[in-house]
Amino acid sequence: MRNEHRGRGFGRPGGWQQADLPDPADVPDWFAGRLPSDWFTGSAVIEIDRDEIVVIGELPIPQPEKPADSEPEADAADKVPNATKEGAIARFRESTRSARMQIANEAQQRYGRSVAWGVSVDGQRYLFTHLAVPVMTRLRQPERKVLDTLVDSGVARSRADALAWTVKLAGKHAEAWLEELRGAMRKVDDLRSEGPKGL
């Protein structure tokens, strides 16, 4: 007998739990064709989840003007003042604002997700406005005690901050495992899409 409730049980119905969202598989290719070629050095890094697409591009390291009689330095990039980098970021952010808004609108229509922007300068990332999505959860006393300890010790201002802090910490220390898990989920989704239809 066919299971009339198929796909409603425990697990990942529709892969990524987002069957109603457009497939984001070609997001990097779309942005590669849509972004102006003179914005970044190299290809932009694209990060995607079910809520948001984050586009991060590498800006060239600004080189301050030097007197003609000064000696060349081997590590000139290391000597660039933070203020110079901040100025380059501000210039990029303001000069590209209208174009970024247009691209973001097009991407949101195509993929059903908000678009956030950021840049990388000299190995440091700077994100512009991006989503902070509330996530509701129920915790038993042992888990609440962990959060309360972080609040009471001053590590976090609230339980919400403490939960965000622990998620960041877990992600940082388990990134290799999480990436392996994401790869396995993609394989499952590929196999599911290749399976027989109409079952």
Rank of each mutant, 00 (worst) to 15 (best):
E73Y: 02
A68P: 09
P72M: 03
G87I: 03
G57A: 05
E73R: 10
P64T: 01
N105G: 15
G87K: 13
I46K: 09
A90R: 15
S37M: 07
D78C: 03
S95N: 06
D20K: 01
M101W: 02
P24Y: 06
W16V: 05
V55I: 11
P72V: 03
S37H: 08
L21M: 12
D69Q: 07
Q18D: 15
Q63W: 02
D23F: 06
P81R: 04
T96P: 13
I56K: 05
E71R: 11
I56D: 08
P72G: 04
G57E: 02
I48F: 09
A90N: 12
R91G: 00
I48A: 09
E65K: 09
D23P: 13
R34A: 14
R100F: 01
A25F: 05
D51F: 09
V27K: 02
S70D: 14
L21S: 12
A74G: 03
P24S: 04
W16M: 10
R50D: 15
S70M: 12
R93G: 01
N105E: 15
G87R: 13
G14N: 10
E47W: 02
P72E: 13
A19E: 09
L35Y: 08
A99P: 03
A68E: 15
D75H: 06
I53G: 03
E94L: 14
W30V: 15
A44T: 07
A77S: 06
A83E: 15
P36E: 14
A88I: 03
E52T: 05
M101H: 10
R100C: 02
E86H: 08
A90H: 08
P72I: 00
R50W: 10
V27H: 01
A74V: 09
A76W: 15
D78I: 01
P13D: 10
P72C: 04
A104Y: 01
A68T: 08
D29P: 00
A76M: 05
R97A: 14
I53F: 06
N105H: 10
G87Q: 11
V27I: 13
I48E: 14
W39D: 14
E52V: 01
I48P: 12
P22M: 00
A25I: 05
N82K: 06
R34V: 00
A83V: 08
I53T: 07
E58T: 10
M101G: 11
S43H: 04
R50Y: 07
P60E: 11
W30C: 07
G42N: 01
E47I: 05
V54R: 12
T96D: 11
E58G: 03
S95D: 13
P81N: 05
A99Y: 02
R93N: 08
A104I: 02
L35H: 06
